[in-house]
């Protein structure tokens, strides 16, 4: 057993107790604590079929305002063209455009993207306002060939592969909780990021596991997700 525990740092996922109950092994990466794996040897295969991962402790941020698009562009961010789409950055980070004036910036799975820290450190430009996305929203990932089918039990937007392309974003209701759903495939495996109000994290996690049960979906650690790329 690893000696890493989620409580050794202040940034804890709202779900850390649930992870411990599931027998999670945690990893520490630059002060970030994530579920490495839940101990199953088939976790990679699980992630290809239907897996649920908690990425809530990975860095993310957001910016909003009339000046936001220009300002983040000036900081080196590649903006997606259309609202409700996202673009992968040169440092592997991900930027989603939620409206003409609102952006969401997500780290890569290894938290190697330096963009988020840079954006958070420097002072924002005119008519640009930072949003505390790392605190306001949890960040879960649903992966695998069954993901869209599972989503159809809890989300009214058609997320099937041929209807919801990679890099598309839907702001919608997942299990009646307002959510941002981003399709961001990992390698050839379909992957959906879900960002939902952090206070509903446990609710959403439980709903997803319930909806996944029919397809033998299970929680997977970040190691399995990284292996997909």
């Amino acid at each position: 057993m690893s000696s890493i525990t989620p409580t050794q740092v202040t940034r804890r996922s709202q779900l850390y107790r649930r992870h411990s109950e599931l027998g999670a092994e945690f990893e520490e990466n630059n002060g970030l604590i994530l579920v490495k794996a839940y101990g199953s040897e088939t976790e990679l295969a699980q992630a290809k079929e239907l897996g649920l991962a908690d990425l809530s402790t990975l860095p993310r941020t957001g910016f909003k305002g009339a000046g936001a698009p220009d300002w983040v562009t000036a900081q080196g961010v590649t903006l997606p063209r259309q609202p409700n789409t996202c673009a992968v950055q040169s440092d592997a980070g991900l930027v989603a455009k939620l409206s003409y004036q609102e952006l969401l910036v997500l780290s890569d799975l290894n938290a190697t993207s330096s963009m988020i820290e840079k954006l958070n450190q420097c002072s924002v430009g005119e008519q640009t306002y930072a949003l505390p996305r790392a605190d306001s929203h949890c960040w879960l990932a649903v992966t695998g060939s069954q993901a869209a089918e599972m989503f159809s039990k809890i989300c009214a937007v058609d997320l099937r592969a041929h209807k919801f392309a990679n890099a598309e974003v839907a702001q919608t209701s997942v299990a009646k909780a307002n959510s941002i759903v981003i399709r961001h495939d990992l390698g050839s495996t379909q992957c959906f990021y879900i960002l939902t109000d952090v206070s509903a994290t446990e609710f959403l996690w439980d709903c997803l596991l319930d909806a996944m049960a029919e397809y033998q979906g299970k929680p997977v650690g970040i190691e399995a997700l990284r292996a997909l790329v």
Binding site: Q14, I154, K176, A177, D197, V198, S199, A200, E202, F203
Partner: peptide, 11 residues
């Protein structure tokens, strides 16, 4: 049957 009431919890 199954319906959703998003319960919210403080940290």
């Amino acid at each position: 049957g199954r319906s959703f009431y998003p319960a919210r919890r403080s940290n």
